[in-house]
Computed example of a mutant assay.
Amino acid sequence: MIEILKAIILGIVEGITEWLPISSTGHIILVDEFLKMNVSEQFMSMFTVVIQLGAILAVVVIYWNKIFPFRKKEGKILVNKNKIIMWIKIVIACLPAALIIPFDDKFEELFHKPIPIALALIIVGVLFILVENRNTEKTAKINSINDITYKAAIIIGVFQMIAGIFPGVSRSGATILGGISIGLSRTIAAEFTFFLAIPVMFGASFIKLLKFGFAFTGFEITLLLVASLVSFIVSIATIKFLISYVKKHDFKIFGWYRIALGILVILYFTVLQ
């Protein structure tokens, strides 16, 4: 029961931090420091990625009508051209991150450590504040998913690639920052980030499962299912909160939070230990 409780807590952390631009990796490291699960290091590495599937299913459920391009009418299958084009842009935005997949283990070995993650938290937090200050007097140029250009999709994809190299940058944080820095409204930047996460997280989870293998014990399957279910439920609430929040506020609060968390991580792992 203790291990299941830990899985629930990690599912809550994943469901909140995957969508808010505050780095799920940074939070998972802190939580794991105090609530170490009684599992192998290999399982834990896979677990923290695969429970993202619950978070992704929340996006699919909430935005089904916006992302599914087919519908049936009078016995015919109709195709929404704009949604097909949107998915083409999403695929294009995924290409930069696909380039670094072969080096994933090396990047994890180099940068998946408390201090590099803390620095990434702080740097991106500062960038959020700077970009939002610059945008104070500016009006967003792109206020619809359909208005995102192929060039904009590639730029956002490069930001996502950077997040894939440096844990702590935050995939959602990087893509939202990239989006608003090139003129996307906060709401559209957040929504495109949600949609972009669908192929990215499914792909990352599949790769992790292949590396780990499928020889799960019943206990390990239970931990995965519990954490994924909790992540799904919490993600629904988090996504709805974020979209509601950014309609009236900017992202600076998340920048300050990242800076504070980064400082906390540095203090804990250099001074308190």
Rank of each mutant, 00 (worst) to 15 (best):
S170L: 02
E132M: 14
F103Q: 10
F107T: 06
V246K: 01
C94R: 04
L95D: 00
V39I: 08
M86Q: 11
H112F: 15
E108H: 09
A93C: 02
I233D: 02
F194R: 08
S185P: 02
I165Y: 00
V158G: 04
I180W: 01
G173V: 01
L121R: 12
K6E: 01
I67H: 00
L272T: 07
I85N: 10
K72D: 02
F34C: 00
P114I: 11
I233M: 13
F212S: 06
K141Q: 12
A97G: 04
F214A: 13
L272H: 03
I148F: 07
I198Y: 00
E14C: 11
P69E: 10
K76C: 03
Q160G: 06
I142H: 10
P167L: 13
V265E: 04
S231D: 03
K89E: 00
E108D: 13
V271Y: 11
S40R: 00
I88D: 03
E33D: 07
I115Y: 02
G157C: 02
A93E: 00
D147A: 15
V169D: 04
R258E: 03
F269Q: 07
I84E: 02
I67R: 00
I266H: 05
F195I: 15
N143V: 13
I198S: 00
L121D: 05
I142Q: 07
G173N: 03
S45A: 15
V31D: 01
V13F: 02
A97S: 14
V124R: 09
F111H: 08
H27T: 05
I22L: 04
S205G: 08
N133W: 14
S172Y: 10
I207P: 01
L10W: 02
F166H: 12
I90Y: 05
K113G: 09
T136A: 11
P116C: 12
A120P: 00
V271R: 09
S144D: 13
G75R: 06
I29D: 01
K72A: 07
S45T: 11
K76L: 12
I100W: 15
P21C: 12
R171L: 08
A189W: 06
A204T: 10
K151T: 12
I239E: 03
N135W: 14
P21H: 11
W256I: 11
L57C: 10
E220K: 06
I142G: 04
I29N: 04
Q52G: 12
R258I: 05
A152K: 08
Q42T: 13
G54S: 07
L95H: 01
T149L: 09
A153M: 12
I188Q: 04
A190Y: 08
F68P: 01
V200K: 05
W19R: 08
R186A: 09
K141E: 13
P69W: 14
Y268S: 03
K66E: 14
S144Y: 10
T193F: 13
E74C: 05
N38F: 08
I101P: 01
P96C: 09
L78D: 06
T149W: 07
G213W: 15
L223M: 14
S24Y: 10
I198V: 14
P116K: 11
I100M: 13
L229R: 04
P167R: 14
T193Q: 03
I236F: 10
V49T: 14
L5I: 14
W87M: 01
A98E: 00
D104T: 12
N146V: 09
I101N: 05
D105V: 08
S235I: 07
I8E: 10
K252P: 02
K247M: 06
G218Q: 07
N135T: 04
I148E: 01
N143F: 11
P69A: 12
E109L: 15
V131S: 07
